[in-house]
Design a protein around this nucleic acid. Sequence first.
DNA 1: AGTTGTGCTGAAAAGCTTTTCATGCAAATA
DNA 2: TATTTGCATGAAAAGCTTTTCAGCACAACT
Lengths: 339, 339
Amino acid sequence: MNIKDVANCAGVSISTVSRVINNTAKVSEDARKRVEAVLKETGYRPNSLARELQQNKTYTIGVLICVTELSMSSLSQSINAITDVLKANNYNIMLANSRYHADEELSIFNTFKEKRVDGILYFAAGFAKKHYAMLKNYKIPIVMIGQKSNYIDMPYVIHDDFYAAKTATEYLIQMGHQDIGFIGLPDYDEAAGLERKKGYKLAHEMNNIPLNPSRMTEGDFSIESGYEAMKILLKNPDDRPTAVFATTDFMAIGAISCANEMGLKVPDDISVMGFDDVHVAAFYQPPLTTIHTDTHAVGTKAAELLLSLMDKENPNKITKYVASYSLMERGSVRPLSSI
Amino acid sequence: MNIKDVANCAGVSISTVSRVINNTAKVSEDARKRVEAVLKETGYRPNSLARELQQNKTYTIGVLICVTELSMSSLSQSINAITDVLKANNYNIMLANSRYHADEELSIFNTFKEKRVDGILYFAAGFAKKHYAMLKNYKIPIVMIGQKSNYIDMPYVIHDDFYAAKTATEYLIQMGHQDIGFIGLPDYDEAAGLERKKGYKLAHEMNNIPLNPSRMTEGDFSIESGYEAMKILLKNPDDRPTAVFATTDFMAIGAISCANEMGLKVPDDISVMGFDDVHVAAFYQPPLTTIHTDTHAVGTKAAELLLSLMDKENPNKITKYVASYSLMERGSVRPLSSI
DNA sequence: AGTTGTGCTGAAAAGCTTTTCATGCAAATA
DNA sequence: TATTTGCATGAAAAGCTTTTCAGCACAACT
């Protein structure tokens, strides 16, 4: 069933059918009625492949995320926000997950190009620089999310990772902690993980606390990696940090889980601070003290930014946005003095 | 840049270029080399819209999920499994989330039809029957996931919700509990939530324990709803259940959170049993005793089933699959006698 | 009555592939 | 030498829309 069949059934030309469907020009009352009747009866839906081919526009935005598991990510709210904005502007979403494989990201970019998406929202987790050669003369508008991209010179929307991490660390210091363990992320250029580490370091510097490299461990976003990192930090019973800053809520959960198994109570025996304010964070036991990031705003801004980028009439010049954050004092951190 | 440009650059016809790209027929060494050089130099990618239009096949599978938030769902492993199977068979995925709105589901089905997906994986949460009229003469192959579909007569892959829920309840009974609260889900026909409720009921029947309607509450998958339901169950300090079966891990987490706030320790003062064995479940405090569902198998089977459905040469006849489950004894349930 | 204008309509082109079919040429056979 | 075979190639059709452009009929003018 195609537009030609509909035209035949209604006794009009395909042009007229197209006009009725898209409401793009005037059609006589009489003709319109007949076409609409056929449309309803047959349940005909235009082939969007043909339309998109002819218009050279797919009304589809590629969203590339990079998480090992959908449920383990802090970006579901961002995705909801993106959906809202794009849907309101009549765009569809094509969501693809690289699952943290750089080569898979590349292949997704290629798919996006072949599928002719109109724009891309790129939740980057560190591989962007690797794709530099490819991205350099990639014609489709891209907004990068969660990672700066000065190197590649691409519009971006990020969380204030650096200052937020500094704030988090300073909060622990204010609470009297001087020996603060760190569970970080791989050191990719410009990535959020690296920014958070820098914030942790600066807080130490500004408070004249020497950095202790043996206190700095690394995870990979997962609960398990937080667990393993904590194991290292707690290895020596005589030499343990009094607080730990995990740069991800899920890693914080892993860390607390590990502490519990070693017979340490959080926050009584050791404080743990998270980052992200994931949905479960408030309901964990103890409720996680963490950095709340405005993921909704990030999603909204990114989508809006992309939309304005794609609008050739009045191109936007504001191509960077840094979302605000706040510290959520809950139950996983307590002052040192009270131990 | 299109295939014509490539042909011109290489000094051959477009047919030859197509043949080189798709490796679909023999091309002289000489011509092939020239084409490949141009391909590499220009970074040309064929317009898949045109290809798909002409082949009447999109190599795309629509995956329709129905969750309020990506991170709050138990299906991320299923999705990973689906991705693996489909990718291995050269299919792309178009993931869409109805966010629990029946009308949105309908609109997504329409989009899938317009975009000409080759098949659909439908994570149903109860609305399927509403869409009966539409689905009845919907031409695209669909596999339903997580919900039976005898009414609509559609192939499906499900968890063994009924027996798993019965097993869970019987476990609590074996532990000496006779007064078991229930946090269920809306009663949609054939949906998983209803099956779990039936399992809970049967376990009571078979053990001659009368059902107490005031012990049966309802949530909506979310942590918050579990919290609220628990509030109701614990309202009266003199009349509380000794155990609670939450039909979702996240609702169990909400319930435990509520219990804690009311000064009740889990499992010392009250036992809580979950369902799903979500990733965080094992790392929660206390670690959740729950039903482990084989989400990976469900995803894999569903994708394979769809693939075989789409294969017109040798159509598969096995159109139903029920995944296995197991009970994970962890820390949120304890025998009644020891209280 | 002749001209201009208006309002619908349909034919045809364009968008980019894949694929079929026919052709030309060289090699192999009779 | 004449004929057949085979291979590589290009022209053209098909897949389904949207959109432009020209045309037609009729009404409203001068």
